[in-house]
Design a protein around this nucleic acid. Structure first.
Lengths: 365, 365
DNA sequence: TTGAAAGCGTTACCAG
DNA sequence: CTGGTAACGCTTTCAA
């Protein structure tokens, strides 16, 4: 084994007594804290303190230690440290479906914050499979991660259990609230945002407005559906059942729901769709039916995906601040981990109506 | 602190119905191998062997140990294990830009394979910042991950250094080859796929064909550009410089490049665009210019994003098997980690031309 | 301020 | 096949 040669011959190998050392002369062994201690002429404890930025070290020795560390090209062994401090410096980010492009910017924001704080991000994908949900949950229990961000909309364990379990790693819920669950939450006001979307259509003079919802009674889909109905009710309107359809956020389901709604006797003149992907599908379907958007039918989506701007027509939608949601969620989690935050926190991020080309004033009565 | 009590009646589990245990200040301590040893009446060494599935254990004792482990609700401490076995059971997945939707299915495929093999996936995002690239690289050196999948198209360290560094954790490159680099690689045949795309346009009778390239001389952009030129040359054609433009894979750059190309005196009748996002931008721009796709201009993209199918018009494109690329890349990495693979491996995944509505026979001469 | 030493919970090397 | 017992490399009392 070849160890870093420290200035002349002051050093015997750090682990000289390993009888099984073969002169293969290849594998370079990592410098450890012990080596630095020897070079700097201090104890390992002092090295650890100096490197860890403890205040209980003379400026002089701190300097000497850092010097030695630099010279020996030292890097601290994360595994050993993690075992000792009983943390893993990792957070788990669990989504329900990794194919959803909406998560990308959330990842981006969350990862950036975590990395800046010295944490790594583990990614988890449940595919709505509860076995997998439990698997990731167990990773938390096992201490593979110090905390978790949950964007799956449901909890694989009983909330009672969770609340009672002392010493459970912190969990922050994002995007999709979980029923009967008192975990910290970062979300948008889905109900209000949906109302704003519908209000936009109302402002354009539309009265017969349809809605393609996400899965109900899942919280997210339900909230947006409720927002739709509330806005309609406030305008003294109500959509007939045939103008409401339930999809699953996929493009295909958008097509299907659109077809269903427009099979009704008196189809709507505008459509509020619970996410952009289904809106894409709906617009595609309308086109196939020979209807023009927005001349014949107005369509508004939800999310503001990266492509929505260059869709044809450019999609009017509700923008969610995805990067910021990721950042905020991770910030809350780290605040809890570092003891800066104790009480439950519910944070609502602002949304914005983005008016583009897929909505226009109502022309028919 | 409450430790699992296994004196006398061992019927008391380590972590019983936690929800209703003494709610006060009782942090439940995790069962450890030592506890199992005591309950099963064997040594910790035997417990470790039994749990680890070693062959050097009697069926009887193995059973006894597992029984005790189950009873005590034991879960192995991953941190301690990782330190001891000198691995972290984690792989690092580094992309150049987390916002690129193309990565999603790659993540999905890679994560699934890794998880099945007991590895976790750390996510890394460089944003083309070399400081960050080095940061992630150092994580490898630090042993925070046992291996890395690199999709950034470049190496933050000198290849010489890398090749020389013994004991360096394995790296597998995916999607974007790295110049002068002998690391294992999972990719598609970009040159051939580009030729196929152009051939499709040629088959439709197009002769004046333009190309919106990715950044050159980056490998990926260059390969697709070369493929474009090669296909043209084989048909006895060559595009004038004004029919070639260089973008950065963003929608906006697609618009810009399209505008530039169509400002030329004799604009093309068809466009081969190096990725779908730029194709979206180009189609949007053409629409703004009053040109219809595909009636006036044919456009073919590259990637087959999830939205390409429902774009208007549905985009003809080259499909990359993203999930499979993710799976394959991770498989190669794990094979190396587990010593199943020694030699360098270059794997080319198949692509497919997907003909949709954005290309049509050439109508003008 | 510094050092010695006790772990953190496993795994793996030897002997029996 | 099994049991003692060193490591793994670090952090953190507890004394000095």
């Amino acid at each position: 084994m070849v160890r870093p040669d420290m200035t002349g011959n002051c050093g015997r190998p750090a682990v000289p007594d390993t009888g099984r050392m073969h002169p293969l002369a290849t594998m370079v062994e990592r410098t450890k804290i012990k080596d630095i201690a020897r070079v700097a002429g201090v104890s390992t404890a002092t090295v650890s303190r100096a490197l860890g930025g403890s205040a209980r070290v003379t400026e002089a020795t701190r300097e000497r230690v850092h010097e030695a560390a630099r010279k020996l090209n030292y890097r601290r062994n994360v595994r050993a440290r993690n075992l000792r401090i009983q943390k893993s410096m990792a957070v788990l980010l669990v989504v329900r479906n990794m194919s959803n492009p909406f998560y990308l910017d959330i990842f981006k924001g969350a990862e950036a914050i975590a990395r800046a704080a010295g944490y790594v991000v583990l990614m988890g994908n449940t595919e709505d499979d509860s076995a997998r949900e439990i698997e990731y949950f167990d990773m938390l229990r096992d201490g593979q991660a110090d905390g978790m961000i949950l964007m799956t909309g449901n909890l694989p364990v009983d909330h009672q259990v969770l609340d009672g379990e002392t010493g459970m790693a912190p969990i922050v819920v994002a995007l999709e609230a979980i029923e009967n669950c008192s975990l910290p939450l970062v979300e948008i006001d889905n109900h209000a945002a949906s109302k704003a979307a519908v209000q936009h259509l109302l402002d354009l003079g539309h009265r017969r407005i349809g809605h393609i919802a996400g899965p109900v009674p899942e919280v997210l889909g339900q909230l947006r559906l409720d927002g739709f109905r509330a806005a309609m009710a406030e305008a003294g309107l109500s959509a007939p059942p045939s103008h409401e359809a339930v999809g699953d956020y996929s493009i295909q389901s958008g097509r299907r729901c659109c077809r269903a709604i427009f099979a009704s006797p008196e189809p709507p003149t505008a459509l509020f769709v619970a996410n952009d992907e289904m809106a894409f599908g709906a617009i595609g379907e309308l086109r196939d039916m020979g209807l023009r958007v927005p001349q014949d039918i107005s369509v508004i989506g939800f999310d503001d995906l990266f492509v929505s701007d260059s869709f044809s027509p450019p999609l009017t939608t509700i923008r969610q601040p995805s990067v910021e949601i990721g950042q905020k969620t991770m910030t809350v989690l780290l605040d809890i981990l570092d003891g800066r935050l104790q009480s439950r926190d519910i944070c609502q991020m602002p949304t914005r109506l983005v008016v583009r080309g897929s909505t226009a004033p109502c022309r028919t009565g």
